[in-house]
């Protein structure tokens, strides 16, 4: 007997992610999944964003790492509520991990929840975590050819943040090349060029993100 299924293989993950998104919506928490390679500067970008947003938005972070709690300690040091997930070898976060991590938070005290995914450009692409936005972080030192080499993660992202832009003069990184690839893969996703350490480009990225959060809460206010 032949059973015709024609269903997504990660259906269970997707269902759980949809339930999480619903829960986040009901609690008015805007959720952003941050993906990128190890060392791309995801945690440093979060630190710089929080410095800009902390007065207007109540943030929290879920840190996903294979081992250790170095990133979570960095968030604690700047006073941001944080839950560390150790995947014990797994190369990505999935919706079930987020569901259990979220229980550690009081969602009524959070406006913006960042999920910092495990550093990986391949495996994180297929797993919906219930987020509203996915942001891909790419550092100039990784090279401008990454969208061609790892299309899935770029294709599904709502914005690209190019970090360490202050190093670009010393590297062979052409922002126009990655912009052209993004235009093919994700034509509606904006690109920000920043130096999280020096502050260059951060206001534009932070303003864009607060506008997305405000847009979402306004829309819910109407409904």
């Amino acid at each position: 007997m032949k059973i015709v299924a024609a269903k997504r293989i990660l259906k269970m993950n997707d269902q759980l992610a949809a339930e999480l998104r619903d829960k986040f919506d009901k609690s008015s928490v805007f959720v952003v999944n941050i993906v990128g390679s190890p060392g791309a500067g995801k945690t440093t970008l979060l630190e710089a964003l929080f410095a800009k947003l902390q007065n207007s938005i109540r943030p929290a972070v879920i840190e996903g790492d294979i081992a250790g709690s170095i990133d979570a300690e960095r968030m604690e040091a700047i006073g941001v509520p944080v839950v560390q997930i150790n995947t014990e070898g797994a190369c990505h976060l999935d919706a079930a991990m987020i569901a259990s991590a979220v229980q550690e938070f009081d969602l009524t005290k959070i406006d913006l929840l960042f999920i910092e995914n495990v550093g990986n450009l391949v495996c994180t692409a297929g797993f919906d975590l219930g987020e509203h936005l996915r942001i891909i972080v790419l550092s100039t030192s990784e090279g401008d050819d990454k969208a061609v080499k790892y299309p899935a993660i770029f294709q599904g992202s709502d914005a690209l943040v190019i970090t360490k832009i202050d190093l670009a003069p010393y590297l062979n990184f052409n922002p126009l090349r990655i912009a052209a690839d993004m235009k093919r893969l994700a034509p509606n996703s904006p690109i920000f060029q920043v130096s999280a350490l020096k502050g260059e480009g951060m206001p534009a990225a932070a303003d864009w993100l607060s506008a997305r959060v405000a847009e979402k809460s306004n829309r819910e206010g109407v409904v």
């Binding site: 059973i3 015709v4 299924a5 024609a6 293989i9 692409a125 299309p151 899935a152 294709q155």
Partner: peptide, 12 residues
Amino acid sequence: GGRELLLQSIDV
């Protein structure tokens, strides 16, 4: 497209 991950059919 090109991102699909589908279980199409099962023969028992």
